[in-house]
Computed example of a mutant assay.
Amino acid sequence: MNKALVLALFLPEAALADCAEGTFLSCTIKGKALDVCVAGDRVTYAFGPAGVPELELSEPLSALTHSPWSGVGRSIWEGLGFRNEGYTYEAYLSFDRLNQAAGMEGGVTVLKGEKIVTQLACDAGTVEGHFDTLTEAMAGQGYCWNPADFRYQQGGC
């Protein structure tokens, strides 16, 4: 993978993805915007200057790597993974359910294989997110969550 794509996470500016069906996560990280959105049957990760993201990845809902909250712990969280040339960009959204004043948190972890390359947290106070965005989009495409297999399945919900 081009190292410039990983380094693009550190440059200032803002991105804007097409969020037709909903936003999973929107925030700024070191002055740049991160948008993770659902449009049609795809989920898009965009990071970079406004209107011209330096990195934009799109996955069909059916192929998306999804880590939903297990129901354990004080933080409710959810993560979505986007693959690109040996790297995975895991966008996450969370909040402390025992401290409502703490607000939403989010960010992205970049991995090469299983090794963490970098972890970037959203700037404080910039996080907007919706946990139900992915679940509603998947249901609209005929998928439901199968907790036994820890994945979405189509039909038989």
Rank of each mutant, 00 (worst) to 15 (best):
K3W: 10
G31I: 02
Y87T: 01
A15S: 15
L57Y: 00
C122W: 00
E78W: 03
V110M: 09
T88N: 01
A14N: 11
A50P: 00
V6L: 08
S26D: 04
A4E: 15
F95V: 08
A137T: 10
E105D: 13
R42H: 14
M104G: 09
K30W: 00
N2I: 00
G140F: 04
G48W: 00
A139W: 02
K30S: 15
A101H: 03
A14P: 01
V43M: 02
V127N: 03
C19N: 01
A124C: 03
L9Y: 02
A121D: 14
C19W: 05
G40M: 11
Q119Y: 08
R97L: 09
Q154A: 14
G155Y: 06
A139T: 10
A46L: 01
F47Q: 07
Q141D: 07
E21H: 12
G113I: 04
A148F: 12
A101M: 02
G31W: 00
L134N: 01
L57Q: 04
P53I: 12
F82E: 07
W77M: 11
T118R: 04
Y143W: 13
C157V: 04
V72R: 08
D123W: 01
C37Q: 11
C157F: 04
E90Q: 14
S94T: 10
T133Y: 10
G81H: 06
C37V: 03
G129H: 06
Q119R: 11
G107S: 02
T109S: 11
G129Q: 09
G155M: 07
P147W: 11
A121P: 00
T133L: 03
G103T: 12
E128L: 15
P53T: 09
G106H: 02
T65F: 07
S75I: 01
L111M: 14
Y87I: 03
A121C: 04
L93E: 07
V43D: 08
M1G: 13
S75W: 15
Y87P: 06
G40S: 08
L93A: 12
W69N: 10
V43W: 07
C157L: 04
L64C: 10
R74N: 00
Y92S: 14
A33D: 11
F131H: 14
A39D: 09
R42W: 10
G107Y: 00
R97W: 11
V38F: 02
T23M: 10
T126M: 01
Y92V: 09
G40V: 07
A137N: 11
L93M: 12
P147N: 05
L7N: 12
L93N: 05
S94W: 15
A17H: 00
A4N: 13
G142D: 01
I29M: 10
Y45C: 10
G106T: 03
A14S: 03
V110Y: 03
A102S: 12
S75E: 01
